[in-house]
């Protein structure tokens, strides 16, 4: 078997395995979200289905599948049907550029080279930002096509929120790009080789924090969950959705949660690399899994702790605080990188 054919087989295996594993992970993350929410609130969370209630997500899926699919009579039906997938697809596509182990080098599997990334894409970071921006269309179109007031308000809020945060997010990751001298996520992880003090979160602490805040907005989670603010807009852009269509939105949200946790750990926390070089014997995917779990937990923690911002406060924070800070961070990084290296 020649190398290109082996690579093709590997690619197919990876392209099936990675999404399937992440989907399995998501099922349990939804369960853990509910369980942790219970613990934060002095409750026990789900307990009935399966050991320790751990099959709750599967119960939810069956419930959603068996529910009637309601589509409002006056909605824009093709767009209404399309919107969930516009959110769903980008969340999955980002997985392609996320490295979960070493890439390149010698043959490591049955005499062939196995790259621990689906697509070693030169502009992986740009792809991530672009796909994040596409997902917003899903939210806006869902809100608009539902033909409901609360949905429309939710969709518009999401649109405005994304515009104000994507910029700060984009500028904050440019700092990482400059330090790694590459836009490929594989190279960014290579740039963080060594121990945990070589990771980018130390030189890029400001950029990292801005990126983290912006991902909260990107994920529509609590301080910035304006688009589906339950207490104000009932469920925002999701108000008119029911059954599995609603389920797809929720599912995409959690896939996004995993993927963005992966991106945060890749950009600032060494990706699949072990925190200390002596721990390198543990394979990369496991380290990445641990890091993703840690960040998912942090996102949950934030969600169940913090209040929600008001719409105009969020906008002014995005434009007046995060954007100038991220530009400053970029300028300082550029000067330091060009002087030092």
């Amino acid at each position: 078997m020649s190398d290109p054919i082996a690579q093709l087989i590997f690619l197919i295996i990876k392209a099936i395995l990675v999404p399937v594993l992440i989907v399995m992970m998501v099922a349990f993350i939804i369960f853990f979200e509910r369980k942790f929410a219970g613990f934060f609130q002095g409750r026990v969370g789900p307990t009935y289905l399966g050991p320790w209630g751990s099959f709750q997500s599967f119960g939810d899926i069956f419930k959603l599948l068996s529910k009637e699919d309601l589509i409002p009579a006056k909605s824009d039906k093709p767009v209404f049907r399309l919107a969930p997938y516009i959110i769903f697809l980008p969340a999955f596509l980002v997985m392609a550029v996320l490295p979960f182990g070493p890439v390149g080098g010698e043959a490591n599997l049955f005499g062939y080279r196995f790259d621990y990334v689906i697509a070693n894409f030169d502009a992986g970071l740009v792809l991530f930002l672009a796909l994040g921006a596409i997902a917003v269309y899903g939210v806006v179109l869902a809100g608009w096509s539902s033909n409901g007031n609360f949905s429309l308000l939710g969709g518009l809020r999401a649109g405005a929120q994304m515009i104000s945060y994507e910029l700060a997010m984009g500028f904050s990751v440019v700092g990482v790009m400059l330090m790694a001298n590459s836009m490929s996520l594989v190279d960014i992880v290579e740039g963080q080789a060594g121990n945990f003090w070589d990771w980018y979160f130390i030189p890029q602490v400001v950029g990292g924090l801005i990126f983290f805040v912006a991902t909260l907005a990107e994920l529509n989670r609590t301080p910035f969950d304006l688009a589906e603010a339950e207490q104000e807009l009932v469920a925002g852009y999701l108000t008119e959705y029911s059954g599995m269509r609603w389920g797809i939105f929720m599912f995409a949200e959690y896939v996004n949660l995993v993927v963005i946790s992966g991106i945060v750990s890749t950009l600032y926390f060494g990706g699949w690399r072990a925190p200390l070089e002596v721990l390198d014997f543990i394979p990369g995917p496991i380290w990445l899994f641990i890091k993703i779990c840690v960040f998912v937990f942090i996102y949950m923690w934030v969600r169940w702790t913090i209040f929600r911002y008001r719409y105009n406060q969020l906008m002014s924070m995005g434009w007046k605080v995060l954007l100038p800070l991220s530009i400053l961070n970029l300028v300082v990084t550029a000067i330091v990188v060009s002087v030092a290296g």
């Binding site: 934060f40 609130q41 609590t222 207490q231 169940w304």
Partner: peptide, 16 residues
């Protein structure tokens, strides 16, 4: 009041 401002955890503390 706090739940209306977006956090549900505090609601549970108060109910306890």
């Amino acid at each position: 009041h706090i739940m209306d401002l977006g956090t549900q955890t505090f609601f549970c503390i108060c109910f306890r």
